[in-house]
Design a protein around this nucleic acid. Structure first.
Lengths: 144, 144
DNA sequence: TATTGTTATACTCTATAACTATA
DNA sequence: TATAGTTATAGAGTATAACAATA
């Protein structure tokens, strides 16, 4: 049973995750703004651009930890801008797969650069080994 | 210049931070729900309960990475429930310091327990060394 | 019956601008 | 004039329920 007097917010891993995640999200959104994207749209576009991958919207939602109704809005927007297109599912006519267009691939190329640059700046204070270890531990946490 | 075809969202540290942060935030809010708290209110209460500390609302905002206007609403709620009280600043009459009441300290005690338990479950998959290293690296990131 | 995409809705969180009282 | 707290508001993110088409 923890002693409340010894509780220190700055040592709380959940709190630290919230703070750092909010910071890097802000930086990422700023970096993406000139391209008319935000982090979540970038994530959807990235999945839609995977070679050989034909994700249904449901699969996208599950993969990205989003609600299916959020995927509808995100794909609506990306598709209205010609960056992805919805294709009717082949075996199951209820589903629609989301794939990046040529224009989507081009924009994703730029987006990957600006996001990588923003994160490089953000992770600047860490050594290469620390960044690798952080990625490894976060992957372990998110793989459950 | 990164190759977009080699970009993999699951390797993106910013994305991993978002996912894990959202997961632990959900767990934390669920754990706090019976106490009528959420993560941000818990953070404010925790600061207000620090011994010898008399934070102005501005200091709370800066310390927690919140906008001052958000602190107003959070303190309004905590104060209406008798968990904290606002005291007029002594040197500067514009300021109001926020301190936990006896009832606030009691509730914080319970909150610290349920949050620690939720995080223990969440961090379960990590070794003790990995958790320590995660805390250390996140602290380094958030201290900039 | 159950599931996919969709719409609608509400609540939380984040961000900004303006107002007031003090400094 | 600048700053602290406050109010108002809008936009983004999250969560839930319900509906039509299809399985």
């Amino acid at each position: 049973m923890p002693d409340p007097l010894q509780h220190r917010l700055p040592d709380d891993v959940g709190y630290l995750l919230s703070r750092t995640s909010a910071d890097v999200l802000r930086d990422t959104n700023s970096a993406l703004q000139p391209l008319g994207l935000r982090a979540r749209a970038f994530a959807v576009l990235s999945c839609a651009a995977e070679p050989e991958a034909e994700h249904t919207q449901r699969q996208l939602a599950h993969r990205l930890g989003l609600d299916p109704s959020q995927v509808v809005a995100l794909v609506d927007d990306l598709s209205a801008r010609g960056l992805v297109e919805r294709r009717p599912g082949e075996q199951d006519r209820r589903t629609r797969t989301v794939v990046a267009t040529a224009q989507g691939h081009r924009l994703l190329g730029e987006a990957v650069c600006v996001v990588a640059e923003a994160q490089r700046r953000y992770l600047d204070v860490l050594t290469a080994a620390e960044t690798r270890e952080l990625r490894r531990v976060l992957t372990k946490l998110s793989d459950r």
